[in-house]
Design a protein around this nucleic acid. Structure first.
Lengths: 215, 215
DNA sequence: TAGATTGTTAATCGATTAACAATC
DNA sequence: TAGATTGTTAATCGATTAACAATC
């Protein structure tokens, strides 16, 4: 594990994740060989200089004149991002939400694997998704496995968001992707929260779509 | 409708949406009176200068020494963003997803109102959510009301994303908030798409959480 | 008037783009 | 060697922060 500094810009880390998703997809489809920064850029609507710059942050191992070897680039990205073949995550939400989410965002297609489910509804307890039993949110702390997850995806109702995040924090979870749109949350010490904020995105879109009348 | 230029920075528009959400919440709770940039900043983890700067982009009507009058600020934000009391949107996804989403993101709490639902599953057709009937995605074009929606929230399965977006574009929808994580999409002419990309957010979080070992 | 807070101009910071030398 | 593409340094751009004069 080389000494990866966190000096890598936030925006670059995000794009590196995007390359990881894209390459993972290609590789799963059986595509092999090399890929250039130009191809990647074109495919993902980014400038090619940006792609190369991003790659250089983690020593992408590109070859002038030849581009990047896909499988080794993918491996480098996987290591840089701290992922594994099936990166384990916890997911929180009603059984209904968790089941629906699986369809919209099929984890296996992205190298992600939910290993624990928690619901806010007592009646969901005991149901299973892909042979993983759903537990109650309040059980987050009582699981030893909790510690084996760094990142959780939270899509509970607004009223449960704070409790959930607190419990996850105590259970050692370090990063949370929050789909629930709460305007303010008290984030536990040392926890990274990525806010999704669908309402804000919708309102920002409303602005951009509503205004363009002139000219 | 004053001549709002789109020269307002993207980031500011997003924060203005955030203020709108926050104020809407307060007002709905019955809070009235004035609020200062400092209070807003503290509440939302932003710097107060940033708040004031954002406000100045739309002529917030603040009073030196006294702050902003909440209800008129909210009205100004509503107008600036091109919203209404119940901003109409369309939502696309399975009945299961749409029902689950309603709990996680209760639209009425944010001044948003789904007036049309479309599902990718034929068996969902005819079901209702809050007395709005679910139709099939392929029916998007056959609705006259389609034109009365500027923005849609799309949470269908990856395979349906392109079709959905195309149909929405033809139906006159100008902005789409896409929850479905497709790496590349052919966006119809003149359509704004906001990509959610849960897998990338999760991977970026994995990086930030996994690396901090040193020091 | 004194106290408080706004709106704006200037300074800083970070990220993106452009240019190009290094290298397979 | 010639052609292609990388990695890096410098220039540009945009957004955030700081400072402060204007004003209720």
């Amino acid at each position: 594990m080389s000494s990866e500094k966190t000096s890598v810009p936030e925006a670059s880390v995000y794009r590196l994740s995007l390359y990881h998703c894209y390459l993972g997809d290609l590789i799963r489809k059986g595509v092999i060989g090399r890929i250039t920064s130009r191809q990647l850029a074109e495919e993902l609507d980014i400038r090619e200089e940006t792609v190369r710059r991003d790659m250089s942050f983690m020593g992408g191992g590109g070859r002038p004149g030849a581009g990047y070897e896909m499988s080794s680039l993918f491996a480098a990205l996987t290591e840089f991002l701290g992922l594994s073949d099936d990166y384990p995550v916890a997911e929180v939400g009603t059984a209904q939400m968790l089941a629906a989410l699986k369809v919209v965002f099929p984890p296996y297609s992205y190298g992600v694997k939910p290993i624990a489910y928690y619901s806010e509804l007592p009646e969901d307890v005991g149901k299973s998704i892909d042979n993983v039993r759903i537990r109650h949110i309040t059980e987050i702390l009582s699981r030893e496995e909790s510690l084996s997850v760094d990142v959780a995806l939270v899509a509970c109702s607004p009223g449960w968001a704070q409790v959930t995040v607190d419990l996850l924090g105590q259970a050692g979870v370090r990063g949370v992707l929050l789909l629930t749109p709460v305007t303010k949350l008290n984030s536990p010490e040392g926890m990274e929260i990525t806010y999704m904020r669908m309402p804000c995105d919708i309102k920002a879109l409303a602005h951009r779509c509503g205004v363009v009348v002139g000219a």
